[in-house]
Simulated scan of single mutants.
Amino acid sequence: MFRSRYVDVGDVRLHAVTGGEGPPLLLVHGWPQTWYAWRLVMPALARHYHVVAVDQRGIGLSDKPEGGYDSAGLARDMVTLMQALGHQRFSVFGTDVGMPIAYAVAADHPDRVDRLAVAEAFLPGIDGGATLIRLLQPNQLLNARLWHLIFNQLPPDVNEALVRDREDVFFGAEFDYSAGTSKLPDETVRYYVRMLRSDRHALRGSFGFYRALWTTAEQNVARRAHKLSMPVLAMGGEQSAGLSIGPLMTSVAANVQSVSIPGAGHWIAEQSPDAVLAALTTFLAG
């Protein structure tokens, strides 16, 4: 049913897993995940949609160049990928760092996007200050979950040097602290860690989005001048963002629905796939 493939999108070759019949649906994973984050929802989605689960630039089996990690560049990657696969218009769902990427796709290329679903992130430059300020508060859980927003922006001779050969500690902690009470299986975390150890440029690619964070913030400030007109679904895990994504998206989009995913922490498609499928398919069918 599914095919692993490589697609040239200008200066990089992206890896994607595709399959299914129906309207095209692009899935954009979060950090530090890969396309594999969607594995539990892809078979059901493929009954009604042509699913494209991509490895972002710098991630998984995709190329890992030095630059191009701002949201405008990553959005161009996504649109070029879908164009190469024969899809002029499509729906897109992005979670975690995939959320600002998916938002950039919809804002920069509104003629290409039918519907937008987002989850579990903030939009840099748009109501993001409050999220970052929490790092200064005496809340140990929030510190454990959010400190990477700063650490990941550091130069490679600092963060890459500190994480290399300790990927299991660093990334393992990220998966654990953001999971809530329903932890991901050990074998799933080990898979992601193996991918992050498999390429000498994997850490550079993993941190690329964060090093371009302030460029993305400037782009988002400009995007906010024009609200999205397509329907938007905002999702959050019950034990994580909850319904907080809805008000954020309302500031940049005119037609927003909000859903809290029961039983999920941050990794909603892996922790509560049935609830994500129910919310997403209802939204897409609307």
Rank of each mutant, 00 (worst) to 15 (best):
residue 1 M to P: 02
residue 8 D to K: 06
residue 9 V to K: 02
residue 11 D to Q: 03
residue 11 D to I: 04
residue 15 H to P: 08
residue 24 P to W: 10
residue 27 L to T: 03
residue 37 A to K: 04
residue 37 A to S: 08
residue 40 L to Y: 12
residue 40 L to T: 03
residue 53 A to K: 02
residue 53 A to D: 01
residue 55 D to V: 14
residue 55 D to R: 07
residue 57 R to K: 13
residue 64 K to E: 11
residue 64 K to M: 01
residue 68 G to N: 06
residue 69 Y to K: 00
residue 73 G to H: 01
residue 76 R to W: 01
residue 80 T to Y: 00
residue 80 T to Q: 15
residue 92 V to R: 11
residue 97 V to D: 01
residue 106 A to Y: 03
residue 110 P to R: 02
residue 111 D to C: 04
residue 112 R to N: 06
residue 114 D to E: 15
residue 117 A to C: 10
residue 118 V to R: 00
residue 128 G to H: 11
residue 134 R to D: 02
residue 136 L to M: 15
residue 138 P to T: 09
residue 146 L to K: 11
residue 153 Q to P: 06
residue 177 Y to W: 13
residue 177 Y to K: 10
residue 178 S to L: 14
residue 179 A to N: 02
residue 183 K to H: 12
residue 188 T to D: 13
residue 190 R to G: 09
residue 203 L to E: 09
residue 205 G to F: 06
residue 206 S to C: 10
residue 212 A to N: 13
residue 214 W to T: 14
residue 221 V to M: 05
residue 223 R to F: 04
residue 235 M to V: 04
residue 237 G to N: 06
residue 237 G to M: 02
residue 243 L to C: 03
residue 244 S to D: 14
residue 244 S to V: 06
residue 247 P to M: 01
residue 247 P to V: 08
residue 248 L to A: 04
residue 257 Q to K: 14
residue 265 G to F: 04
residue 266 H to L: 09
residue 267 W to K: 07
residue 270 E to Q: 11
residue 273 P to L: 05
residue 279 A to M: 04
residue 282 T to M: 04
